[in-house]
């Protein structure tokens, strides 16, 4: 039994239908306690104040924003190479969640930036990269929306996703070069464990796990919807052909 079998719509619909309630439950069980712990049961940081608690949303959403694009790249490649419908539908489903995560990361970043640096927006490399990522998501989704034939749309958006990934990476380097970090980005980074004490770090990990599970649940729901839409489109064409 190979992993590819789950790329078959029949298998996927059956399995995802069974798994979905559990994933939703697990997401709720990690995300809600994680956020409550982070917001209400961590000590106030001496020099940051309460505003630091926004990292429990900001950091996971920012991580997801990037990782979801990476997942879309992989699923787009799978569609181009192996033509599995589930794969490309999952990419489309993920895009909407990815763009939402990007917007959340940008907005929470702005809210946090105001007390931290005294400004909602700075053309800092990290912020700029997220803005560019947001534009890439927009273009990808707009291309999906513009093309009527689902297979053509799948092919073209996959090509865009692959080429776009290369340019997104280039943009990241270009932006770093363009504005060589006017402020220290390290304090934002969650992988610098030495910067974040365990009392903050553990609930953060729980929130990250929660966001990942939330994403899995949402992407399953949306992929199921997308597959239904493909079938709907297909049935409509058949009806039209019978009339003709």
């Amino acid at each position: 039994m190979s992993l590819w079998e789950f790329a078959n719509p029949v298998k996927f619909m059956a399995l995802s239908g069974k798994v979905l309630p559990w994933v939703i439950g697990l997401a709720a069980l990690t995300l809600i306690p994680g956020l409550i712990w982070g917001f209400f049961f961590t000590p106030e940081a001496t020099n940051f104040g309460n505003s630091v608690k926004i990292i429990y949303i900001h950091v996971p959403s920012a991580m997801m924003a990037i990782n979801i694009w990476a997942m879309m790249l992989v699923t787009s490649l799978i569609w181009i190479v192996r033509r599995h419908h589930v794969s490309v539908r999952a990419a489309k489903a993920a895009a909407l969640i990815g763009v939402t995560m990007t917007v959340i990361a940008l907005i929470t970043g702005a809210i946090w930036g105001e007390p931290m640096w005294g400004t909602y927006w700075a053309w800092d490399p990290r912020l700029t990269s997220f803005l560019i990522l947001f534009l890439f998501y927009l273009g990808y989704m707009a291309l999906w929306a513009a093309i009527e034939n689902p297979d053509t749309a799948a092919d073209l958006t996959s090509v865009l996703c692959i080429v776009g990934s290369v340019f997104a990476l280039l943009s990241r380097y270009a932006v770093n070069f363009w504005n060589q970090g006017l402020h220290q980005g390290a304090s934002l980074s969650m992988d610098r464990e030495e910067h974040v004490a365990d009392v903050y770090y553990l609930p953060l990990l729980l929130c990250i796990a929660g966001f990942i599970l939330l994403f899995v649940a949402l992407v399953l729901i949306r992929t199921r919807t997308e597959l239904r839409l493909v079938r709907l489109h297909r049935l409509e064409i058949r009806e039209r052909m019978k009339d003709a």
Binding site: I132, L135, A142, F167, A174, V175
Partner: peptide, 17 residues
């Protein structure tokens, strides 16, 4: 219009450098 939306992010590295 869609063409502009797709192409503009791709132009960013060239523009920056």
């Amino acid at each position: 219009l869609l063409l502009s939306l797709l192409v503009l992010p791709l132009y960013i590295p060239t523009l920056i450098f």
